[in-house]
């Protein structure tokens, strides 16, 4: 049973990534959007080559959440446009496995985006991104998982709803602000002049709790909300 679950999730993820490798639509647009967000912030905030202290962490996470929202909307828009969501849901498999596959595909895309975003933020805002690579990676991974777990569920549910493009951020941001607070505070603890490692680890612990709650709730609700 468990192996079946992950086999289906793996296939859904591979399908999404294959489509993505061929078209590169979501990756390129999301990446470009994320870079523009960071650039807009640097034009607005950096004065005479110096950014104010403590802004780098916030800007990194704003860019992640904005571009993440864009990517989420697009991955399900493709299913709606080609009317393949019904085919996907008709597959004789667990619905939560389909959700997991979609989530994993999104996470791979966002990981690629973050690999560009982190050095860019380090460069433009003088953030010490290489000081604690492991801790920073843990914060980014856990934060992105929590954010995407809710986002994938909401994007899937919004496929059938009017004005889905405006409603996704409206619903997503209030719910995921706890994750954003933990991510931003943890990253800021690493980026400050005297890094505060125990503080960053405290926020990592909190992120693990939130991720567990959000993933459990999402797996639990995906089945009933996707049933017509």
């Amino acid at each position: 049973m468990i192996s079946d679950f992950f086999r289906v999730a793996w296939h859904v993820m591979r399908k999404d990534l294959t489509v993505e490798v061929r078209s590169k639509e979501v990756l390129l647009t999301t990446l470009f959007f994320a870079v523009s967000v960071v650039l807009v912030f640097s034009f607005a905030i950096v004065r005479e080559g110096r950014a104010p202290d403590d802004v780098a962490a916030g800007i990194l996470w704003v860019a992640v959440s904005f571009s993440g929202t864009l990517a989420m909307g697009r991955t399900f828009e493709r299913e709606r446009y080609n009317d393949t969501l019904r085919a996907l849901l008709l597959a004789p498999s667990d619905r939560p496995a389909i959700y997991t596959g979609k989530l994993l595909g999104l996470l791979v895309l966002l990981a690629l985006v973050e690999m560009v975003l982190v050095p860019l933020v380090g460069l433009l805002f003088n953030a010490p991104v290489l000081a604690f690579p492991g801790t920073l990676a843990a914060l980014l991974v856990l934060g992105t998982v929590g954010f995407s777990a809710v986002g994938t569920l909401f994007a899937a549910m919004l496929v059938r709803v009017r004005s889905r493009d405006t409603l996704l951020p409206v619903l997503l941001y209030p719910i995921t602000i706890p994750v954003m607070i933990a991510g931003v505070r943890g990253t800021a603890a690493l980026f400050q002049e005297t890094p505060d490692l125990p503080m960053a680890q405290f926020w990592i612990g909190l992120l693990i709790v939130w991720d567990a709650i959000f993933i459990t709730l999402a797996l639990w609700t995906f089945e009933p909300v996707m049933t017509e």
Partner: peptide
């Protein structure tokens, strides 16, 4: 956000709203 969804979501927004409310209760 829940009430905005219920007001402007149109058909199908009741289930989505219920999912949203579960997350809110958490």
């Amino acid at each position: 956000a829940y009430l905005l969804l219920r007001r402007y979501g149109g058909p199908g927004s009741d289930k989505l709203g219920a999912g949203m409310a579960l997350f809110g209760m958490a």
